[in-house]
């Protein structure tokens, strides 16, 4: 496989990641979100392995396997278990309606391309064209956290954001040092657990997982 072919496949994967990011933004059903998130993780894992192959940096394979194990299998499983435990059936309400969210998302993607244009001219890496996508994924994850009300969707948004960061790391520099990646992976896992405890706490306090309920914590004037 030549480098240019690898770059092209990588671009396709980047496009798929961006597509799933948009999917996360518009999906209303919670299981749908979970599936989309798992798919995003899978694309990310393949892309990492591909970059590792093309660039000859073999520690990326480990990253790829970690991604596969954590983001495609373990985290969706934990979240699934949480959803079952907490008996979440409802469709998810968004703060901003879907078309507006989509428009904002598109604006963010354009903004990302605009931002990374100077970097792309300077970079010599095969993955340079995907940096914009990575940045856009980060921003879309953040946007998802802003626009969704439900605590579970917030954590999915957070994890999507992390996916974007990871993707940016591979595409900008062929990945972070392995130690850092292991640390980040562990952090994500712990974050998921903390979120789990946090959900139970929110539910016992407010009898709902709507984070809007937390406005009650505000100090009265």
């Amino acid at each position: 496989m030549t480098t240019s072919l690898a770059a092209q496949i990588n671009s396709v994967l980047a496009a798929l990641i961006l597509l799933t990011a948009f999917g996360l933004l518009v999906q209303r059903r919670i299981y749908g979100l979970l599936h989309l998130f798992a798919w995003q993780g899978l694309f990310l894992s393949i892309s990492t392995a591909l970059v590792g192959y093309a660039a000859g940096s073999h520690h990326l394979y480990i990253s790829s396997i970690l991604t596969l194990a954590l983001k495609v299998i373990l985290l969706p499983y934990i979240l699934h278990a949480l959803i079952v435990r907490l008996q979440i059936r409802k469709e998810i309400e968004a703060v901003v309606n879907v078309p507006t969210t989509m428009l904002i998302g598109i604006a963010l993607v354009i903004f990302s391309y605009h931002l990374t244009a100077p970097i792309m001219e300077l970079s010599t890496l095969v993955t340079r064209s995907t940096l914009a996508v990575a940045l856009a994924t980060v921003m879309l994850g953040l946007l998802m956290m802003i626009t969704r009300r439900h605590a579970v969707t917030q954590i999915i948004g957070f994890l999507a954001l992390e996916n974007g960061l990871f993707f940016a790391a591979t595409s900008a520099t062929y990945g972070m040092p392995l130690v850092v990646e292991l640390g980040v992976a562990l952090d994500i896992l712990i974050a998921a657990f903390v979120f789990g405890i946090f959900f139970f706490q929110i539910r016992t306090t407010f009898e709902s997982l709507d984070v809007n309920q937390m406005a009650k914590l505000k100090e009265e004037d």
């Binding site: 953040l142 984070v211 406005a215």
Partner: peptide
């Protein structure tokens, strides 16, 4: 405001 969204918007 006590709303997570608002805080996220600030950072965004």
């Amino acid at each position: 405001q006590g709303r997570i969204h608002i805080y996220l918007v600030y950072s965004f």
